[in-house]
C-alpha cells in the first residue's frame, strides 16, 4: 500500500517537473501556446470546482480574470509583485463575497442572472473610474516578468488548484457540496449550512481566476477595459470545462487541450467569424456530449462490463 501511494506521489512530482521544463524545450510560439493552455486549465478547473458539484452556472469568469489583470496594470510598477497578487486576490474575494452572499442563498437563476452582467458591470465601473478620475482609458503594463516566469507561476497555480480540488473532494466540505448538488433541501435538513458552503467554494474558485488574470496581465503590454473584460473568455472557459466534464477534477483539462488548439486555429483562420464558430462548437457539445469527454469515456468503459 505504502509503495503504491509513494509511486503515485512520485509520478505526480515527475509530471510537474517535466512540465516545468517546457520553457527550455519550446520556442516563443510554443511557449505562448503552453501559457494559453495552462491558464485555461486553471480557469476551467477553478470554474468546475464550484459549478461542477453545485450546478450553479457561473458566467462571470472574466469579471474576476479582468479584476486581476487590472490590478496588475495599476500596481505592477509601484508595488512588489507578491503584494500585487495579494491585492488582486483581496479584491476578487471582496467581489465574490458580495455576489455569493446576495445570490447563493436563493435558487440558481438569480446567480446566473447576476453573473451574466457582472463582467459588463465591472467593465463599466472601471471605465467610469478611469475616465473621470485618472482621465485615461488604457494602461501600459511595464514589468520585467518574462514569458517563462509567467508560465511557471501559472503552473504553480495549476498545481494549487488541483491540490485544492483533491483536498476538498476528501473533506467534509466536499461531501456537503455533493449533497447540495443532489438535493439542497435534504442537505439543509441534514445540518449542512448550504449557503456558507457555496459561498466558501465560490470565493475559493474565483481567487484562482483573479490570480490567473493578475499573472497573465504582463503578457499584454497594453490593457483597456474591453481587453481585460472580454466576455469571450468566460464563454471559452465554460465550453472547455463542459467538453472535458465537470464531475471529475481532471475533467476540464481534457477539454482545455483540444479546444485551446482548435481555437488557436480558428482565430488564425477566421478572425472575424470566431464567435460564431465558438458558439456552434458549444451548442454541439451541449447536445452531443452533455457529460463531457470524461462522462463519455466512463460510459463506454462501463457498458461492456
Amino acid at each position: 500500500m505504502m509503495t503504491q501511494d509513494a509511486l503515485r506521489v512520485l509520478g505526480v512530482a515527475a509530471a510537474i517537473a517535466g512540465l516545468a521544463c517546457v520553457p527550455f524545450l519550446l520556442g516563443d510560439y510554443g511557449l505562448s501556446l503552453a501559457i494559453n493552455i495552462v491558464s485555461y486549465t486553471v480557469l476551467a478547473t477553478a470554474w468546475s470546482l464550484f459549478s461542477g458539484p453545485t450546478r450553479y452556472v457561473s458566467l462571470a469568469t472574466v469579471a474576476f480574470f479582468g479584476i486581476g489583470a487590472y490590478t496588475t496594470a495599476v500596481f505592477a510598477e509601484t508595488l512588489a509583485w507578491p503584494l500585487v497578487l495579494l491585492i488582486a486576490a483581496g479584491i476578487g474575494i471582496l467581489v465574490a463575497g458580495i455576489v455569493g452572499l446576495s445570490t447563493l442563498r436563493l435558487s440558481g437563476v438569480y446567480f446566473v442572472i447576476f453573473t451574466l452582467g457582472l463582467a459588463e458591470l465591472v467593465r463599466q465601473l472601471v471605465t467610469w473610474y478611469e475616465v473621470n478620475k485618472t482621465r485615461t482609458l488604457g494602461r501600459y503594463v511595464f514589468t520585467d516578468i518574462t514569458a517563462a516566469q509567467i508560465y511557471w507561476q501559472l503552473l504553480i497555480l495549476a498545481v494549487l488548484v488541483f491540490a485544492a480540488g483533491f483536498l476538498i473532494g476528501r473533506s467534509r466540505l466536499g461531501l456537503a457540496l455533493r449533497a447540495i448538488g443532489d438535493d439542497e433541501t435534504v442537505a439543509r435538513h441534514s445540518g449542512i449550512d448550504a449557503t456558507q458552503a457555496k459561498v466558501a467554494l465560490f470565493v475559493l474558485s474565483t481567487v484562482f481566476m483573479t490570480l490567473t488574470g493578475a499573472i497573465m496581465a504582463p503578457r499584454w503590454t497594453y490593457i483597456d477595459p474591453a481587453i481585460a473584460f472580454n466576455p469571450v473568455i468566460s464563454f471559452t472557459v465554460l465550453i472547455m470545462a463542459l467538453l472535458g466534464g465537470v464531475h471529475r477534477l481532471y475533467g476540464p483539462v481534457m477539454g482545455v487541450v483540444p479546444l485551446a488548439l482548435l481555437f488557436e486555429f480558428l482565430l488564425a483562420r477566421f478572425p472575424n467569424h470566431f464567435s460564431i464558430m465558438v458558439g456552434l462548437v458549444f451548442i454541439l457539445i451541449v447536445y452531443a456530449i452533455p457529460r463531457g469527454i470524461v462522462g463519455l469515456v466512463e460510459q463506454t468503459v462501463r457498458r461492456p462490463a
Binding site: N272, S275, F282
Partner: peptide, 25 residues
C-alpha cells in the same frame, strides 16, 4: 426542471454568441 434550466441556459448562451457573431460580421 433544474436540469432543463441548466441545459437551456447553456444552449441559449451558445446561441447568444452565434447571433452576436453574425451581427458583428
Amino acid at each position: 426542471r433544474d436540469q432543463l434550466e441548466v441545459d437551456s441556459i447553456l444552449a441559449t448562451f451558445g446561441l447568444l454568441f452565434v447571433i452576436q457573431g453574425v451581427m458583428l460580421a
